[in-house]
């Protein structure tokens, strides 16, 4: 049995750490302050496992093999790899994975109606490396990952992502492989990357998403279609699938926005949200 000791949501973007100098200083410092407060609260919760709801950007899963949901069974994540280190300006390092916990989740899923794919080799990019730079600076908390396809449509529905997160939450509580579990989801909020609208951010939609998380009212989020998110949140906004998965893992919990900044230079609506009982 494990206790869920913390939950947090954060945007990810390689430029958050890769090009801090191009953002307006006041925006950068407010967002960094949000990450630092998140780190302070996370450390105080003393998790022995970080379960992360994240997504690939076609670095790991190409069009020849695209899982909707994939459990990472990686021994240690490059967070980042030497190559990614150059882009994200984070020193290359290894963070321990949790393959035994992941295998137990995988088996429980297959037995219980969630047919996860799995991977023993995942190259971490900004979906792990950037938030973990802030949240796991010593790299001492092992990381378990659940990757959801948010980047190569067609994508799983938000409702299914929420159900998947609920399954992971129930598993985490019942499994003895960890005793103090923290959930972290990364991605979003609005951003347009590589589309004709590249660079657009929609703060109004971002606030709508955050407001619903803060109220713990996720049902309107679960009804969002791919088209609606593409229109209002951009292709990067599809990553809120990770956020609603986490909200499924902690039913009844509510968000508390620590920082929100629409940073045009990082082409991302950047949010950090603490989630609590």
């Amino acid at each position: 049995m494990a206790e869920i000791v913390a939950a947090a949501l954060a945007a990810h973007a390689p430029l958050i750490t890769g090009k801090p100098e191009i953002a307006r200083p006041e925006q950068r410092e407010r967002l960094y302050a949000g990450f630092h407060e998140m780190r302070r609260r996370l450390a105080a919760a003393r998790p022995d496992l970080l379960v992360m709801f994240v997504n690939d950007h076609l670095q790991n899963f190409p069009y020849s093999n695209l899982p909707a949901f994939c459990v990472g069974l990686v021994d240690a994540y490059d967070a980042p790899s030497p190559g990614g280190s150059t882009l994200m300006r984070i020193p290359p390092r290894k963070i321990p994975g949790a393959p035994t916990w992941g295998m137990a989740l995988l088996e429980a899923g297959l037995a219980g109606g969630f047919d996860f794919a799995y991977s023993y080799e995942i190259e971490s990019w900004d979906e792990l490396s950037v938030p973990l730079h802030f949240l796991n600076p010593d790299g001492d908390i092992p990381v378990a990952t659940v990757y959801t396809n948010c980047a190569a449509p067609p994508l799983p529905t938000l409702r299914r992502c929420h159900e998947m997160g609920a399954f992971v939450g129930r598993f985490a509580r019942s499994h003895r492989g960890a005793s103090r579990v923290a959930f972290v989801a990364t991605g979003g909020i609005s951003h347009w990357v590589g589309t004709p609208e590249t660079g657009r951010i929609n703060p109004e939609w971002d606030h709508w998403v955050i407001d619903h998380i803060e109220r713990g009212d996720v049902e309107p989020l679960l009804r969002l279609t791919w088209d609606e998110i593409e229109r209002d949140g951009g292709n990067g906004g599809q990553e809120i699938r990770n956020w609603v998965a986490l909200m499924g893992a902690v039913p009844g919990w509510k968000g508390e926005s620590l920082a929100y900044e629409p940073v045009p230079e990082w082409i991302t609506g950047c949010g950090t949200v603490w989630v609590h009982a």
Partner: peptide, 25 residues
């Protein structure tokens, strides 16, 4: 032609990585 590629069904993340010089931001 990054707009045309998008319309033809190229993934925007891949468009951006390969045609990075085409993006002003």
């Amino acid at each position: 032609d990054i707009r045309r590629l998008y319309d033809l069904g190229a993934n925007p993340y891949l468009i951006r990585r390969v045609f990075r010089p085409r993006f002003p931001i």
